[in-house]
Design a protein around this nucleic acid. Structure first.
Length: 592
RNA sequence: GGGAUCGUAGCUCAGUUGGUUAGAGCGCCUGCCUGUCACGUAGGAGGUCGCGGGUUCGAGUCCCGUCGGUCCCGCCA
C-alpha cells in the first residue's frame, strides 16, 4: 500500500474515488461501535471511520490506535451524512471508511499534548521538538519561511543576482560582536572564527567582478540571547557593484514586496524615508514605529526661561526637555500609573519624570506646577502640542537619554492605550546614520555600522575634524518599529578605508594584519559597491505573528545558548581535546 | 555581568497565617457506549513538591545557596 493523496486535497469532488492516505492519528473518538479517527498529515486532516459491521478488521485496528500512531489507509471516499459535516475544514464534508488499514508505527504516550502546546513550557517543546514541529502552527511557520525564502530567491535570480556560498570557517575580526571560535587541529594554538556575517567575502566578490551577489547566509554572534536574537541566525545577504543608494532601495523594496506577498501581505513601494536625526528626535529610536503618532516634542526653549530650576539647569548645561502628549488622557492616569512610568524611565537612565495634565478644573502635575508660572505652563503646553484634556510626560536630561527614554515610553504607552493599528504595515528607510559613535568603555571611536561603510562624500573632511558629526552612507529598513535589515555603500578606495581605520584607532600595521587582503583587493581595481542584509528570522517572525524568533526556527537555542533536544553544547572526550591542543581548567569543566 | 519572574502528577495549574493522608482539569490505563469532532460515561493508576543546606516539634509553604526556563538591561560593528 502506498499513499497517493494528502488529506486536505480531498473534498466533495473526490467522492467515490479510491484513495490512499497516510499520517498520524490526531485524535481517536471511540463510540463503542463506530470509531472515528482524525488523520493528520503535513497538509491537514481527514476523518476516517471504522464500522464493525462493514469492516471488522479495520475496526479492530482502530480500537487499538492511540494519539500519534502512524497509519496508512485506503478506501472509497464518501460524503458525510447530512448534519455531521464540518464546514470549517477543507475536507470536512467527506470521510473515509477504509477497506484496508496498516499500522505503520506506534507512539509512546506524549510528553505533552500537541493541542496544548501553546501553554506548555517552551523548554519541553524544544526538548521534544520533533513533536512540537508536528503541530499545524509550526508547520505553517516553516512553510511560510520556505515560501518567503523561495520568493526571495526567485526575485533575486530574476534581478540578475547569483548565490555564492562563503566560508563558515573563517577569521576572527576585531570589530563588532564576540566571535565563536573553532580550534584548528592542524595549526596548534590557531583558531577559526564563525562569520558574524559574510561582509568581507561579499565585498571581495564585488572585487572579483561578480557584480550581483546574494546568499541566504547563516551568521554567528556569541552574544546574549533575546526573544528576537539567536546566536546563529539567517541573513538575506546582498551586494551590488556600480550602484548607489537608489539601486539598493529599489531592489530591496521589490524583494520585500514579493517576500511579504508570499506570506499574504501587501506593501506599498517605494517605502517612506527618514533621516536618522529625524527618527531620533521625533521617535526617540533609529527604528521608529510609524503606525501611530505621539511624536516626541522638544520643550527646551520653554525650559530655558522657566522658573523650575531642575529643567532650567539641565537645558543650560546642554541637555534637553522632551515631552510626549497622551491625547485625552487627562484624569485617566493615576499616581500609580505615573510612578510605573517613572520607574520604567529610570531603568533607561532618567533621573526623573514629570507630568502636566490639563483638566477642565485646571492644571495638575507631578508637583512641578508650583515652580512654573502660568506663562511657562502655557508655553510648554503649546510646544508639546497639547490641548485641554491631554496629559503630557516630560523628561529633562542629556539628549541621548531623553530620546531613548521618551522613545521607549512612547511605545509602552501606545501599547497600553491600544492605539497601534495592527493592520498597518509601515516600511521605511532610515538614512544618514552617523558614521561613528564614541565607546565609553573602550575610550575610542567605533563604527556605528561597520568600518567598511563609506562616509558621505560631503562629510569626508569631518573624519579628522569632527568625526562624530560625519554621516555614513548607511541605511536601515524598518518594519513597524523593528529593524529588519540594514546596509551601506562601502568604501572602495584604499585611502579612505585607511582613514576610517585610523579614526577607530586601528593603525596601519594592525589593519594589515586583520584586513590585509581587503586593503590589497581595494587597490586592485575595486568597483564602487554596496549592499544590504535582511534578518530573515525576524522577518518571518513578524509575518507569522510569532512572539519569538524561536517559533520560526526549526531547532533554536534557549536563552543560555543550549539545545534541549541534543543537549548541545556538551563536554567532549579528553582525547578530542588533546587532538585540538586544548585543556580545560578543572573547576570550569561542565559535567559530562 | 545585572534585574525581574517561574519551577508541585506526563501536561497546565491550585495548595490559606508553617499543621495530620498534597488536590483539580487534561492526558494515560480498564469497562460501557453506532454519527463523534474538546464525544460521552463509570472506575483506576500516577508525586524525590527542581536540587542541596538551614530555621522549626513540624517545611510544598520561611531563610540561604544552587541548577534550569522565560522576559529585560548591558552586550548584539
Amino acid at each position: 500500500m502506498k499513499r497517493d493523496t494528502k488529506c486536505s486535497d480531498l473534498g466533495e469532488a473526490n467522492i467515490g474515488q479510491e484513495v490512499c492516505v497516510a499520517g498520524w492519528v490526531n485524535v481517536r473518538r471511540d463510540l463503542g461501535g463506530l470509531i472515528f479517527v482524525e488523520l493528520r498529515d503535513s497538509s491537514g486532516k481527514l476523518q476516517l471511520v471504522a464500522d464493525p459491521n462493514i469492516n471488522k478488521e479495520a475496526h479492530q485496528i482502530f480500537s487499538n490506535l492511540r494519539s500519534e500512531f502512524v497509519i496508512i489507509a485506503k478506501g472509497k471516499l464518501t460524503k458525510r451524512p447530512e448534519g455531521t459535516q464540518k464546514a470549517d475544514q477543507s475536507s470536512g464534508t467527506v470521510e473515509l471508511y477504509p477497506s484496508e488499514v496498516i499500522l505503520l508505527n506506534t507512539a509512546a504516550p506524549l510528553a505533552f499534548q500537541l493541542d496544548q502546546a501553546a501553554s506548555v513550557d517552551e523548554g519541553l517543546r524544544l526538548k521534544y521538538r520533533f513533536l512540537d514541529l508536528r503541530r499545524p502552527e509550526m508547520q505553517h511557520n516553516l512553510r511560510t519561511r520556505h515560501n518567503v525564502t523561495n520568493a526571495i530567491r526567485m526575485y533575486l535570480d530574476k534581478a540578475g543576482f547569483i548565490e555564492v556560498e562563503t566560508p563558515i570557517l573563517t577569521k576572527a575580526t576585531p570589530e563588532g560582536a564576540r566571535d565563536f571560535l573553532v580550534p584548528s587541529r592542524l595549526n596548534p594554538g590557531a583558531w577559526y572564527a564563525l562569520p558574524q556575517s559574510p561582509q568581507l567575502f561579499k565585498q571581495t566578490l564585488m572585487m572579483s567582478g561578480i557584480e550581483r551577489y546574494y546568499q541566504i547566509a547563516r551568521c554567528f554572534r556569541d552574544e546574549d540571547l533575546r526573544a528576537d536574537r539567536q546566536p546563529e541566525f539567517t541573513q538575506v545577504d546582498m551586494e551590488m557593484s556600480f550602484i548607489d543608494e537608489s539601486d539598493i532601495f529599489a531592489v530591496t523594496e521589490g524583494l520585500l514586496k514579493d517576500a511579504f506577498a508570499a506570506a499574504g501581505f501587501e506593501v506599498q513601494i517605494p517605502f517612506q524615508r527618514m533621516t536618522y536625526e529625524e527618527a531620533m528626535s521625533k521617535y526617540g529610536a533609529d527604528k521608529p514605529d510609524l503606525r501611530f503618532g505621539m511624536e516626541i516634542k522638544d520643550l527646551s526653549s520653554a525650559a530655558k526661561t522657566c522658573g523650575f530650576k531642575v529643567f532650567k539647569d539641565v537645558v543650560e548645561s546642554g541637555g534637553v526637555l522632551k515631552a510626549i502628549c497622551l491625547e485625552g488622557q487627562a484624569g485617566k492616569k493615576s499616581r500609580k500609573d505615573f510612578d510605573a512610568y517613572q520607574d520604567f524611565a529610570k531603568e533607561f537612565g532618567a533621573k526623573g519624570l514629570a507630568f502636566l495634565e490639563f483638566n477642565e478644573g485646571g492644571v495638575r502635575s507631578s508637583g512641578i506646577d508650583k515652580h512654573l508660572s502660568p506663562e511657562d505652563i502655557e508655553k510648554m503646553k503649546e510646544l508639546a502640542g497639547a490641548k485641554q484634556g491631554d496629559f503630557i510626560l516630560m523628561i529633562a536630561s542629556p539628549d541621548k537619554v531623553a530620546a531613548n527614554v521618551m522613545g521607549r515610553l512612547r511605545l509602552k504607552i501606545a501599547e497600553e492605550l491600544g492605539i497601534i493599528d495592527e493592520n498597518k504595515h509601515v516600511l521605511l528607510w532610515v538614512v544618514d546614520f552617523p558614521l561613528f559613535d564614541y565607546d565609553e568603555e573602550e575610550k575610542r571611536m567605533v563604527a556605528v555600522h561597520h568600518p567598511f561603510t563609506s562616509p558621505r562624500l560631503d562629510d569626508l573632511d569631518k573624519l579628522k575634524t569632527d568625526p562624530l558629526a560625519a554621516r555614513a552612507r548607511a541605511y536601515d529598513v524598518v518594519y513597524n518599529g523593528v529593524e529588519i535589515g540594514g546596509g551601506s555603500i562601502r568604501i572602495h578606495d584604499r585611502g579612505v578605508q585607511e582613514r576610517v581605520f585610523e579614526s577607530i584607532g586601528l593603525d596601519l600595521a594592525n589593519a594589515q594584519e586583520k584586513f590585509g587582503f581587503l586593503l590589497k583587493a581595494l587597490e586592485s581595481g575595486a568597483p564602487p559597491h554596496g549592499g544590504l542584509a535582511l534578518g530573515l528570522d525576524r522577518i518571518i517572525m513578524l509575518l507569522t505573528g510569532s512572539k519569538s524568533i524561536r517559533d520560526v526556527i526549526a531547532f533554536p537555542k534557549t536563552q543560555s545558548g543550549g539545545c534541549p533536544m541534543t543537549e548541545a553544547p556538551s563536554a567532549v572526550p579528553a582525547e578530542q581535546l588533546k587532538e585540538l591542543h586544548l585543556t580545560v581548567k578543572e573547576k570550569e569543566k561542565v559535567r559530562s
